[in-house]
Every structure is written in C-alpha cells, then in structure tokens.
C-alpha cells in the first residue's frame, strides 16, 4: 500500500525480463533467511495486536469488560465528532509546519557540523542534548520557563519594551510552542543526516574540486542528490512520527490537550478515549483511521520519491 513506488518499479523490471535469473531465484531463498527474525516477530508480536485492534475497532470495548460487536458504529461516530475533527486540524497543522522546519534545521546544522571545524564533537553533542530529554516530565516545566508568562521569551521581549503573554497557555499560540519544541529536538534527523553525509564518497567532491566547482555547486550537484535517500527516509519517518506525536503534548498540556483543545493531538484524543473514557473500541477505530491517513501520505511520499530520490542500486 505504502510502497506504490516500489511496486511500480518492480513491475517495470519484471516486465522487462520474463524469466528470473538464477541469482534472483536464489534471492527468494536468501530472503527467507535474512527476514526470518522479522517474520517471526511479525507473526508472534506485531500482527496479533494489530489485528486485535482492528477487531476491537468494531466493538464496544471498555477495557474493563469483554468487547461486544457493534459493527461500524465507531466509524460512523467519527463523522460526527467535533473534537475529533478539531484534533485532525491540529495534527495536520503540526505535521505540515513542524516537519519541514525540523528537517531544514537538521540538515542545515548537519552541514555545518559535518567537518572542518574545531570542537565538532562538543557542538554535535550540545545540539543533540535537547533530544535526549525525550518525553521527560521535566519538559513541561522547562517549556513554561521559556514560553510562560514570566519565561525567557517574555523577558527578552521585555527588554524591547514589549509586554508578552503566556504563549504556552494561550489557545492561539500553544500549538506553535509545541511546534518549536519539535523543531528544538532536531537531533535525531540531524544525526541521520550526518551519517548520510559520511556515506558520500569523498572522491566525488575531489573530482568536482578539480573541475573547479564551488561550495554551492558541490552542495547542489553532489551532496543533495546523494543525500536524497536519507532526506526521503527522514521525511517519511518524521511524518509518521509527527502524526503520532503524543508525549510532548501530553506532558506540556498535563494530558488534556488544552488550553481549549488547541493542542489536542489526534493520538492524545485517542488516548483520552481509550484510557480515560473507557472507550477502547472507539480509540481503536480512531487508530485505524490514522493508519489509513498515514499510509496514504506515506504512499504519496513513495510515489513522488521517484522524481527526486536517487539510489545507487
């Protein structure tokens, strides 16, 4: 589903060759070996809960009692749930604004921190530090120290005579502060970019240096194209991750997605339904709607990737 591009590409190669080469036949056998742990994991651990949640999405399930089958009622209910629609708006806004910003920050800093600078290890570690905090409960406090009424931002604004407000607790700005929080933790994609930059064979740069190419040209014609698989990876997974964003909103808003539902992420609402309202059936249905949305976007990502992602194979 999500690998339309792959699918299309594979069809093409298949169409080109009617019979399989001996090496490709060997591939099937080897694949079983290489994928054995994954297949076992899929069968034993991943698939069961996945299918169970699909089944539960057609039931009324309070967690405390046995589920009872109610058909598509949960799905119908979603059509008429204003808080769910609001949470979709919040989540989409979050994904489409913060993911590109985060990736740009990550790539930019990865370029700067790639090499040719003293103290790189320290800089990298410092910039990664915020990402180490993860979903620590401390985040809520720390974020208030920055974006609260008496936080750092307002102190700085105060120097310029501007009277700021509590950004983190204002319905119009709270989501923005969470986006900044997401951008702030750009460490993971930055590291992946750094690793990707490492993988670009030096000789390409040398060759182009001999050709007299400048920095910008090297970046555009060597770094970027060779980094596209990694950019693509980061894009796909950050999108998947951002749709499931939960912990930070949970911690910062104290679990409620407030103020006034302005940070009610989809998964936060799902969690509230499942664990606070004892409506795991509805939560499961929500999860499957989310899966369809993410899968569709991922498929789109894969589809468009063939226009801009370059592989060596």
């Amino acid at each position: 589903m999500s690998a339309l591009g792959e699918l299309a590409a594979l069809r093409k190669t298949k169409g080109a060759k009617d019979t399989l080469s001996p090496s490709e036949r060997g591939d099937n056998k080897a694949a079983i070996f290489f994928l054995a742990p994954w297949f076992i994991g899929l069968g034993l651990i991943t698939a069961g809960p996945l299918l169970a949640s699909l089944y539960l999405s057609f039931t009324d399930y309070s967690l405390l009692e046995a589920p009872s089958w109610i058909g598509i009622e949960n799905y119908v209910r979603m059509l008429d749930d204003p808080r769910l629609h609001n949470s979709l708006v919040v989540t989409f806004t979050y994904v489409f604004v913060s993911v590109p910003l985060q990736l740009a920050a990550a790539l930019g800093l990865a370029m700067v921190l790639d090499r040719g600078l003293r103290g790189l290890a320290i800089y990298r570690s410092v910039y990664y530090l915020p990402s180490l905090l993860g979903g620590s409960v401390a985040i809520a406090i720390l974020w208030r120290q920055i974006f609260g009424t008496n936080g750092l931002v307002n102190q700085v604004l105060g120097i310029f005579g501007i009277q700021g407000q509590g950004w983190v607790s204002h319905p119009d700005y709270a989501l923005g502060t969470l986006m900044i929080l997401n951008v702030w933790t750009f460490g993971a994609p930055m590291i992946i970019f750094l690793a990707g930059l490492r993988q670009i064979p030096e000789m390409y740069y040398e060759a182009s240096s001999i050709d007299g190419a400048g920095r910008v040209r090297k970046f555009v014609s060597i770094t970027l194209p060779l980094l596209t698989p990694i950019i693509f990876f980061n894009l796909v997974l950050q999108v998947i991750g951002a749709f499931q964003a939960f912990t930070q909103a949970f911690v910062v808003s104290g679990g409620g997605g407030g103020p006034a539902d302005s940070t009610l992420f989809y998964t936060l609402y799902l969690y509230q339904n499942g664990f606070r309202s004892f409506d795991m059936g509805y939560a499961s249905a929500m999860a499957w709607l989310l899966l369809v949305i993410i899968a569709a976007l991922t498929a789109a990502n894969f589809f468009f990737s063939k226009y801009w992602v370059f592989y060596n194979d």
Binding site: A3, E6, V236, Q244, T267, M286, A287
Partner: peptide, 26 residues
Amino acid sequence: LKFKGRPIWFAIMLMSIMLPIHVVIV
C-alpha cells in the same frame, strides 16, 4: 534481494509503525 512480494512485505513493515502504541499496548 529481489524476493517475491517484496513491496507488499515492505508496506506491511512500514504499516506496523503506523498504529499508535495506545491501541496495541492492551
């Protein structure tokens, strides 16, 4: 490896991280 059904397995693999943990944890 060019094994049979690769795109589908690949899709299934990706799918497995698309469900939020809160519904699979139970």
